[in-house]
Structures are given as C-alpha cells and as structure tokens.
Write a protein that binds this DNA or RNA. Structure first.
Length: 1020
RNA sequence: GCGAGGGUGGCCGAGCCAGGUCAAAGGCGGCGGGCUUAAGACCCGCUCACGUAGGUGUUCAUGCGUUCGAAUCGCAUCCCUCGCACCA
C-alpha cells in the first residue's frame, strides 16, 4: 500500500479524539499499582531529572506549556513549529512513561483584536486582503468577524484549533479557555490583589501615545503613521524674560562672568516670563550665546502651573497633555520675542533672541537656544545671522550686537579644536544652512561629544567629567533647582488610524516594581535554578533583571481583566499572562463553581493551602490537589525574543507568588521562521497555511521538516523544495518498513510459526553483522535520548532517521538479507526506530508499529539501551572492514587498475605486542616512555629502529582515543578480514586473500608495511 | 550606541563548552556508474587541490598569540542576527 498520509492521519486523529488519549489527570486511587510499566529504568540512559513529587501510580509527571496563541489573525506555518516543539517533548516524556500534561488556551487580552475588528469594520483594504486572501476567510463569514469575540472565535476554531489538531498535537483540550473568561479574570484579580498587598505595585506617571481626536491613549497598532516614532525626553531650559518692554541695553549691565550658582534659577520674579528652550543636550547650557524664535509662527503667553510661559501655541496644548495646568492668556506672534534679551537660568547671562525660519514651532516649545561652539547648525546659523544685517535691522535688532556674539566652548573633545562645530563644518566645506551634509556633521559632533567630550572648568562639580557619565545627573540637579523642566516630544509626526494627531501624553498609571531589590533577588534565584535551553541564553535573563525598570501594567481600554481597585483600567496583556500555567491545572474543573465565589479566599486556599484562610472552601482544597500534582511547569517552550519581557515576567511572578519548589523547571527559547529565505508576513501574503501544507504533504512531513531542519532555538526556513524532499524521505521509510512488515508474514510460515525467534532463540543464529547493527542501535538510542532530554529535536531525529539509515545501507551491503536472523534483526531495529521517531512523526510510526507488533508506538515506550547488545569490538571490526574497503577502492582508483586479486596482510605478532604496550600507556602516551617499556623485551630490542618508527606511528593512532581502547587490542584482525572476504570479493569482483605478515604470499613486498589496525594491501 | 548571541567546505547545518581518531557528521544540490524500454524511485561511488598504492598540500570570517598539537582556548579587527520596553 502506498504511503497515504491523509488516510492514515485521519484515522489516528479520530482514534485519539474518541479515546481522549491526551486528556491527563493526576492518578486516581484506583490507578495505583495497576500500571504495567515496561521500563526497567535504564541506568545507562540519562536519568530524567525528576520534577515534583508525585503521589500515586509510580509515574513521574511532566507539565509542558507554550505561550497561548493570540488569534488576531490566522495561523501560518511559523506558528506551527512553535506548538509542535512542546508536543514532541510531551510525546517523548509520555514514551518515557510520564503522565504528561500539555494544555493550551487563547490569549485575547488587549487591543490587537479590537483594532483588527475596527479595521475590518471600517473597510480597510489591507485588512480585508489579509483576511480574504492570506487567511482565506470566506466572503459570507466576514460578518461573523465584526465583533471582537466573533473575530477571535473564528480564528480559534477555524484556524488554530483545527490546524493544531490536524498536526496531531497531544493537547488536553478540556482545559482550553480565553483570557477574557470571567473565571480567568477572577484568577488574575487574585494575582493582582496579592501583589498589591505585598507592595509590588506602585502608582506613577508615564508617557503614552495619545490621540488628540479620540481623546484617548492608543497603541502602536493603532497608528497610521509614525509607528517608528520614539519618545524624546527634552530638557526645557527656563530662560527668564523680564517684561515685554525690555531692551537689549538694560540686560547688558548685569552681565557677569562669575557664572556660579548664586544667581541661578530659582523662582521667577513676578513680572518675569519663562521662555523654555527645548534641548536634548542639557549639558550645553553654559555654551549658550543667543536664542532663536520663528517670527512668523503662532506663540502664546500662557499660565502654566502658575507661571507665565512663552511657548509655541502647539506646545501649550502638548504641555496640557503632560500633567500641567495650562491656560492661554494671550496669543502672540513669534516676532514679539525677537530682539529681546532672556536670562540664562544657569549662568545668569542675558542673551539676545534672533529671528530664524529654521526653528520649527511645531516641535517641542518652539524656542531654541543656540550653542554655536558645539552645534554645527548653530555655527552656520550664527554666521548667517551676522551676514544678514538687513534682516536683523528689519526686526529692529542692532547688528553690532549680533556681531559681538562669539561662540563659547564648554566641552573638550579629542580630535577637535576649541570649537568642534567649526571643525566639523570646515572639514566638510559646509557654508550654508541648506547643506544636507549638516545633518551628518551634527551627528558626528553630538556623538563624539557625548562619548568622549569633557566638561570645562566652569561646570564646577561636573568639570572634567565625560558628558555621557554626568548628563543625567546634571539635568536632575538643575531640575531640582528650578532651572530646568522637561517635556516629551515624538521624533517624528504620528498620526492615528482615525486621522487625528497623536501627541505624547503623561498619564497616571500603575507600575509593577520589577526593580525592587528583593524581588530581583528572588528572580535571580529562579533563573539560577532553572534549565535554560540553550544554555547560552541564561546570561540574557540575568542581564534583563538588572535592566528592567518599573513596568506600567494597566491600559485605559482593551479586552481583559479590570484592575481590582480601579475598574476604569484594564490589566495589560503581558501582565495578565505570567502565571496562567497554574490556571491550566484547574481550568477544566472550574465550570461547576460560580465566578463570584472565586474570590480572594478561594484562590488563597487553592494556592496557599487550608491554613492560609480562616474558612477554606472545600472545592478549592480539592482543586489544590490538581495544582499540587502538576506544578511546577517543567518546561516552558517560548521564544528567545520574549526573554526581555514575557519570560522575565513569567519568572518574576512565579518567584514572588509561589514557593521555590513551584518555580519553573526550564525554559527553551525558540527561533524564528523564514519562508523561502525571507521573513513571513501576513500583510504581504508571504505565509504558508498549515492546512495547505498538511493537505499537500501530510502532517508528519510538516512536523518532521519543522523539527528536523534546525534545532528549536535556531531559525528555520520553510522551503517548499526541502519540504518535498522530506516527504520523499518519509515515503521511502514507509515503503521499506512496509516491505519488511508484509514480508515477515510470509516468512513466518516458512520458519515454522515465526514468533519463537529471539536473541536467545534456538534456531536463530545472529551473525556478526546482525550484532553490529544491534550495537549501532544501542548507540543511537543513547544519543537520541540524550538529545531529547536537551530538546535537541534535530540532533535526535538526525541520529535516528538519517544517520541510522547510513548504518542500514552498510548492513544491506554487508550481509545476506535472506537469512531469518537478518529479517529478525531488521524487524527489531525497525520497531525501536519507530518508537524513537514516534514523537516526531506520530501518525506514521503508530500506524507501522501497530501493524508490526499489534500496538501503537506511543503505547510501546521509549527504547532503552541494552548493554549486552553494545559491542565496541564488533563496531571497531566493522570500521576496519569499511576502511579496508575504502583503501582498496582508493588504490584501484589512483592506479586505474581492475584487480583480479586483493591481498590483505595483517601485522606481525611482534607489532601487535608493541601496540599493546602503546595502548597500555594510556590515552596520551609519550613516545619516550613507551620505547623504554618496549625495549625491555630483548626480541623487540633487536629490531631497534623499526620498533622506534612503529611506536611513533602507533602513538598517533592511540592518542586521544578513549572509548574503544580495550577493543583496539581485542580485535581479531585476521578473523575479521577473513569473514569479510566474501563481501570484499563482491565489492571488487576479485579474489581476496588474507595473510598474516609472517606467513604471506607477498609478490610486491608489501606485507612488512602492515601495522596493527592498518593492514597492508596489495592488488594485482 | 548599549545588551545578548553568532560567523564552518556550492547551499542548509554538526563539531567548539571538556584542544589530538577533523579534509571536518548528516541532509540537499552537482557529477559518474548500476537498475529500468524510458523517466522517476532505488542502489553504489565521487564532489578543496595535486597524486598511476591507501599519500601529500592548503582550509573552518581576518590577524596575532597560547600549546608538542587549535575549527575548538586567549586577544584584536571586520561582518551578521535578535532585543533596547510599556507591544503581542
């Protein structure tokens, strides 16, 4: 029968569903003792790190989870791997005899689904295209997707669940839920009330994207333009402007160069107006020589938190969004400030405000300070202002005063002269503010000054410090003195999908205190205790703990759980998904309990035991047993790029809320998926749907490709051609297996009843090739087991599938396959390989295994190494035969002859004795001491030089070889080659003669070059 | 820029942590041969260079270094990927 995955897979899916094969429960009393387990606990096989205690039936438990899918769109083949990795592990542990729980639920919290629905409802083309073309939603079902739950439900049922079931994932579906379920919310409520009580939540201010049209915060997903925009934290330097009538002259008097602290900042005088100048380089405040304002733009005089400010009209609105009371007193044009003098709050100096069209009134405050020594822009602008007397006069500015403005250097930078801006401009021959290279010059100066610039003497306590090291400190210090303020601004224009402008708003919010020292320490312990796979990710966990600040954990809108003490807010999606694995253990038994009874006490009793509350709910205590049995999570399979957030939160919350015995056992990070070499993208339609792939190749092929083409943490690349190759490989495997299974039936009669064969079986004589193959099987089992324990799906499947195929090729060449013993061997090997491959290709292996033995592979158990079948000597002997074959072939090829006779000479006895001495000298023999020992023997001493050469050469052979050193001296070379002579004759179509060196037919004098493990050869 | 990880033969990818059996697994592709009416499938061999005896030479991003010995250890340089938050 041809390999027909669709038919096979459908059958098994049905069987699993009907029997509830993957619905796992803690053992009931009745189960205890009645298990017929088959493992004699392999002592040679890596022992499984046993996780939590388990009552009952003698089985270990394994609890494996994966981040629940977020159904804001369909499922593609990249997702398929994410969920298949834990499935493979789950199946492996089940074969090892564990009681395994692999649950799944649906994450629908937050705004992505709501956003997707809104885009659909507003008829957005791109969204329609994604739904219709990429994910194949039928036209007439689109309306089902018009509500968030309808949308989620559709993709859960029609995409995720259907595909995951088609892939044969061994999920306990009784436990599924969504994060919007009432009972789940009760669980999250318990979690946040507990954290709140423990003081790990804190109220504070936080910048957010705010749509000025919808008058509410929006997420990155809601943006039409400016998704890349970042918050920029501007420093506002509060220059003072004394009355509107001030002229330049009266400012000149009190100019002083003492520029120390006593005249600094402080409270503005009653008639003073604050002109806040926005800058990203607060440390340049002592280099300010003048300021600029756009004379043609709209500005306002406004009351800001009780002070009078002069800012751009737009800035007044922004400031109002950033926690300030703003009321506009008067609308004025920028020209009002032109020609005025304003006082630097740090130096106390008065500087002149010049008109400039390059000032963007729409950015920050719309007024900027000028630091020509350190800003190429300002350098050029000042030069241009000096040159443009006419314009200055037009604004009533005394050109002499402008000419007097001199750059002031306040930062020393290596590689630049006194005025870095000047150097940067002159190096590039820039002489106009329109020169595009000005951007690069500015970048250059800014970067170098930041990293290597040293503040000059007038900076007092900061003098001599590198900018990078003290900028923040300096900024804070001046802020405290009232000289500085701050405001946020985007790096670029940001527009909401509704069309409204988005601005930075500062809102009150609740933070999780991930920088709490005690909490950090517990989390570090959790990291130290767990397995990090691959191990080289561990560093990143520690690092993230140090780096994480407070995390704002609530949102103003979206799906999810309300903040218990302030229901206006919703707990944010990453924050409501940190310990939900605990919820899996009880999810399927919560239906009986009304949500309102799932209160604080209920969960306290459940998670902390009967002593934790005064009147524990019996039902909670019953559920506690489920939780106790399954927890902790043994492995969480997630993605490496989630380490800085989700995985870290997962660890933090476990570390805080549960005892260390319930902390995660391990985390495996998964890599990303590519499609034909480039990133998948649902909006571009550059995805492959699992349903299509399964239909075309079969689920086993999809699984095998995903798990065998790279290790889980590496990126994989779905290439249709490669997937096709994988399908062909499985097909070949299937055909071979089937031949063997069918053939066996007829053989059975020929060999009277079959059945009775066994290693000790009377009629069955296993020859050395059979035993060799069985020995190889043991090595493979050990290798696969080790790999599976480390989640190395690729290494495991490579070993059992491809590399073992190599051994089989050799075996087929070497042996007479018509022998009953050969068929028995092949059958035995097939049986074991089906079990080893069962986690990867469960459909195919179960089917074949059942046909072969009467029961599915998944019921058979994971093979264990049989030490009696390991035979290093046999493996070494086969290697010698194989090398001899290669050597003869090489000689034939190089000489271009077609030999009639191949003579093989085995090294003389005395050489063998030398070899034994060399081997006896240990894994790192040195020539000198071996020679000493050898020369004690008078027979050998006679051979002098010859022995010396031999030892030198043999030392090389032996060095570093550990595992098979005993075998090396134990092999019977003559016997080995004689047994192989028929094989060699067939290979070369020539007569093969084997001689000991001492007693050889040796027409070409070659015998003497024979060495132990390296026979001499002569062909003619 | 900062943090983490990485650069292996035509491609994908083992090996590196625990230096010697490494010209370097396996897969794919390519070439030659077998089987077949033929194609496919399947089987065998070759696939860094040179070589009429199993060999020799030069390779594991680049350059130094440690060592009897380095793809494997150290340093420096160049390049790539991921993350840099309030978002799943």
């Amino acid at each position: 029968m041809d390999y027909d995955p669709q038919a096979i897979e459908a059958r098994w899916r049905e069987r699993w569903a009907e029997a509830g094969t993957y619905e796992s429960d803690p053992p009931r009393e009745a189960d205890v003792g009645e298990d017929e387990d088959e493992d004699e606990s392999g002592d040679d096989v890596d022992s499984d790190e046993v996780t939590g205690a388990n009552a009952g039936d003698g089985r270990e438990k394994t609890f494996v989870t994966v981040p629940y899918p977020y159904p804001n769109g369909g499922m593609h083949v990249g997702h398929a791997r994410t969920y298949t990795v834990p499935d493979v592990y789950a199946r492996y542990r089940r074969l090892q005899g564990d009681n395994v729980l692999f649950p799944l639920a649906w994450h629908i919290t937050g705004t992505p689904i709501i956003g997707a629905v809104e885009r659909l409802n507003s008829g957005e083309e791109e969204q329609l295209s994604i739904l219709r073309d990429t994910y194949g939603v039928p036209e007439n079902t689109l309306q089902e997707l018009e509500t968030p739950m309808g949308f989620a439900r559709y993709f859960i049922e029609e995409h995720y669940k259907r595909n995951l079931q088609a892939l044969g994932l061994s999920i306990d579906w009784r436990r599924e839920f969504t994060t919007n379920d009432e009972r789940y919310s009760k669980f999250v409520t318990w979690q946040y009330e507990t954290l709140h009580d423990r003081g790990l939540l804190e109220k504070g201010l936080n910048p957010v994207n705010y749509c000025t049209n919808e008058r509410q915060p929006v997420t990155t997903h809601d943006l039409l333009e400016g998704e890349e925009a970042e918050f920029q934290d501007y420093t506002l330097v509060e220059f003072g402007w004394k009355g509107e009538g001030s002229t330049g002259s009266d400012g000149g008097d009190d100019e002083d160069d003492r520029n120390d602290g006593d005249s600094e900042g402080g409270e503005p005088e009653a008639d003073e107006v604050i002109v806040p100048m926005a800058t990203l380089r607060p440390e340049t405040v002592r280099g300010v020589t003048n300021a600029y304002v756009d004379p043609g733009a709209e500005y306002v005089l406004a009351d800001v938190n009780g002070e009078r400010w002069f800012v751009a009209a737009t800035a007044a609105e922004k400031l109002a969004l950033q926690q300030r009371d703003v009321s506009v007193i008067e609308e004025v044009s920028g020209e009002r400030l032109v020609g005025e003098r304003v006082e630097n709050p740090v130096t106390g100096e008065d500087v002149l405000v010049l008109p400039a069209t390059f000032v963007d009134a729409g950015n920050a405050t719309g007024v900027v300070m000028s630091v020509p020594a350190h800003s190429p822009d300002d350098w050029i602008a000042l030069a241009e202002a000096k040159a443009d007397a006419e314009r200055m006069e037009r604004y009533g500015i005394d050109t002499a005063e402008v000419k007097e403005i001199e750059p002031r250097a306040i930062i020393d930078v290596e590689g630049f002269g006194e005025f870095p801006a000047k150097n940067a401009v002159e190096e590039r021959n820039i002489d106009s503010s329109n020169d595009p290279r000005l951007v690069e010059a500015t970048q250059d100066v800014y970067n170098r000054e930041f990293h290597t610039g040293v503040l000059s003497a007038e900076y007092g306590e900061y003098a001599g410090e590198v900018v990078e090291d003290v900028r923040e400190e300096l900024r804070e210090a001046y802020r405290e003195r009232g000289a500085f303020d701050a405001m946020y601004e985007f790096t670029e224009e940001v527009v909401c999908r509704c069309g409204g402008a988005v601005e930075v708003s500062i809102q009150e919010t609740w933070f999780l205190r991930y920088n709490d020292e005690a909490w950090m320490e517990k989390t570090r312990e959790a990291v130290a205790d767990m397995e990090a796979i691959p191990e080289n990710t561990r560093e990143q966990y520690y690092h993230t703990i140090d780096w994480l600040e407070e995390w704002p954990c609530i949102r103003n809108y979206g799906l999810g759980t309300e903040l218990p003490w302030d229901p206006e807010f919703i707990i944010e999606p990453l924050s409501d998904s940190t310990i939900y694995m605990a919820y899996y253990t009880i999810a399927h038994r919560l239906d009986e309990i009304p949500p309102e009874e799932l209160d604080r006490d209920f969960f306290d009793a459940l998670f902390y035991g009967p002593e934790a509350v005064s009147d524990p709910d019996e039902r909670a205590l019953a559920l506690r047993e489920e939780w106790n049995y399954w927890y902790p999570v043994d492995f969480r399979c997630s993605a490496t790029d989630l380490i800085p957030n989700h995985l870290m939160f997962f660890l933090y919350h476990h570390a805080e809320l549960f005892d260390s015995t319930d902390w995660p056992g391990g985390i495996t990070g998964m890599g990303m998926g590519l499609l034909e070499g480039s990133a998948m993208s649902s909006s571009k339609g550059h995805v492959v749907l699992p349903s299509d792939a399964i239909e075309r190749y079969g689920a086993d092929t999809v699984r095998f490709f995903l798990l065998n083409s790279s290790e889980p943490w590496q990126d994989f690349d779905w290439r249709a051609e490669r997937v096709g190759d994988t399908r062909r490989q499985l097909e070949r495997f299937w055909n071979r297996a089937e031949e063997l299974i069918d053939g066996d039936a007829s053989d059975a009669e020929a060999t009277d009843g079959g059945e009775a064969v066994g290693v000790g079986g009377e009629r069955l004589e296993l020859d050395h090739t059979d035993r060799w193959l069985l020995s190889k099987l043991q090595t493979t089992i050990a290798e696969a087991t080790r790999a599976m324990d480390d989640f190395q799906t690729r290494a495991a499947s490579q070993a059992t599938f491809f590399r073992f195929e190599e051994h089989l090729r050799w075996y087929r060449r070497r042996t007479d396959l018509d022998r009953p013993a050969a068929r028995w061997t092949l059958r035995t090997v097939l049986e074991a390989r089906l079990e080893l491959l069962a986690p990867f290709v469960p459909f195919l292996t179960n089917e074949l295994h059942e046909r072969l033995t009467g029961r599915p592979a998944e019921d058979a158990g994971w093979p264990t190494v049989d030490p009696d079948l390991r035979d290093d000597r046999l493996e070494l002997e086969e290697r010698l035969v194989s090398r001899l074959t290669d050597d003869v072939r090489d000689i034939v090829e190089v000489t271009g002859t077609d030999p009639e006779t191949v003579r093989v000479y085995v090294a003389a006895d005395w050489k063998q004795r030398v070899f034994e001495q060399v081997v006896a000298a240990g894994p790192d023999p040195d020539v000198g001491s071996v020679m000493g020992a050898v020369m004690d023997n008078p027979d050998l001493r006679e051979r002098g030089n010859e022995v010396n050469e031999l030892v030198t050469s043999l030392v090389d052979v032996v060095r570093g070889r550990e595992s098979d050193r005993e075998a090396m001296t134990a092999v019977d070379e003559c016997g080995t080659y004689e047994r192989a002579s028929d094989f060699l004759s067939r290979e070369f179509d020539a007569a093969v003669e084997v001689y000991p060196e001492e007693d050889a037919v040796d027409p070409a004098d070659r015998a003497e070059s024979a060495q132990p493990l390296r026979p001499a050869i002569h062909i003619e």
